[in-house]
């Protein structure tokens, strides 16, 4: 079953054609990465799916329900999180989550408290006093609090530190394991590659490729990573050279070093 399906979906803003004839299909239970540079049409596609803006042509379906500006039913089981999602700064975390929780029929206060605890959020703090990362955690809980069957994430970890990114990804994976479908756009390609089962590439408002993880792997050169100890490092390099095997030397990347230093702090 396709959780998201679009047929020739288009959107124009005046003379600008933001997306053209988008045909995508997102299978149930998958994490699909939606990739493209700024202005490619990722957010526009998501905004049409969420009914924030109307399509200029074509049609879109969520759970076989036609998407439209006024159709609340289509997004009944959808959670949405965007980068820098706006929240009311005057309320406490608990008040904000209670309000958004009560907008849903199946509000489960215990579930929300558990999520907040898992993310290390202090429910008593005012939203206005939170850091960007903690605000985004609140927005993530807002997206998840109704236990949605579909999560639409528009660059959710953009601007967040790697620790928070890792936490987000852990929770997103957990949701997928519980049966949810995730449609995510991100500029952080390493994150998308690690997280996603399927990939859709969009360029200048048009879909240029849609592939699974296996298809992506089949089309690329296989790379083996060897992490030698300082003692046998020279021996391995010599062996590779002797056998005329091409290799690339890479020092430890900054992200893994950073994670090594700080991940315990977050546990």
């Amino acid at each position: 079953m396709s959780v998201i399906k679009t047929r020739k979906l288009s959107k124009t803003f005046g003379d600008l054609r933001a997306i053209s004839d988008i045909d995508i299909s997102i299978r149930e239970g998958s994490i699909t990465g939606f990739l493209g540079p700024n202005g490619a049409g990722k957010s526009t596609t998501m905004n049409v799916l969420l009914g924030f803006i109307s399509a200029s042509g074509g049609e879109a379906f969520l759970f076989d329900e036609k998407v439209g500006v006024g159709n609340v039913r289509a997004r009944r089981d959808v959670g949405f999180l965007a980068n820098n999602m706006a929240l009311d700064g005057s309320l406490s975390v608990a008040q904000e989550l209670e309000f958004f929780g009560r907008l849903n029929k199946n509000y489960d206060a215990d579930f929300v408290r558990d999520l907040a605890a898992k993310l290390g959020l202090d429910m008593k703090l005012k939203i206005g006093n939170l850091s960007t990362g903690n605000r985004q955690k609140v927005a993530l809980i807002v997206a998840l609090l109704a236990k949605p069957k579909l999560l639409i994430l528009d660059e959710p970890t953009n601007g967040l530190d790697p620790l928070v990114q890792a936490e987000f990804n852990k929770i997103i994976r957990q949701f997928r394991d519980d049966g949810a479908t995730i449609f995510i756009s991100s500029h952080i390609l390493s994150e998308v590659q690690e997280l996603c089962d399927d990939f859709i590439f969009i360029k200048r408002g048009r879909i240029v490729a849609q592939m699974t993880r296996d298809e992506l792997a089949a089309g690329s050169n296989e790379m083996i990573t060897i992490k030698p100890s300082p003692q046998n490092r020279a021996k391995i390099i010599e062996l590779l050279r002797k056998n005329k095997i091409k290799f690339e030397q890479k020092t430890t990347d900054l992200e893994s070093t950073f994670m090594k230093f700080y991940e315990d702090e977050n546990a």
Binding site: L50, V78, M85
Partner: peptide
């Protein structure tokens, strides 16, 4: 303008 309207409408709430 602040974006909080979109956050509310991302929930199943009618305009």
């Amino acid at each position: 303008a602040s974006g909080t309207l979109l956050t509310v409408l991302s929930r199943p709430v009618r305009r």
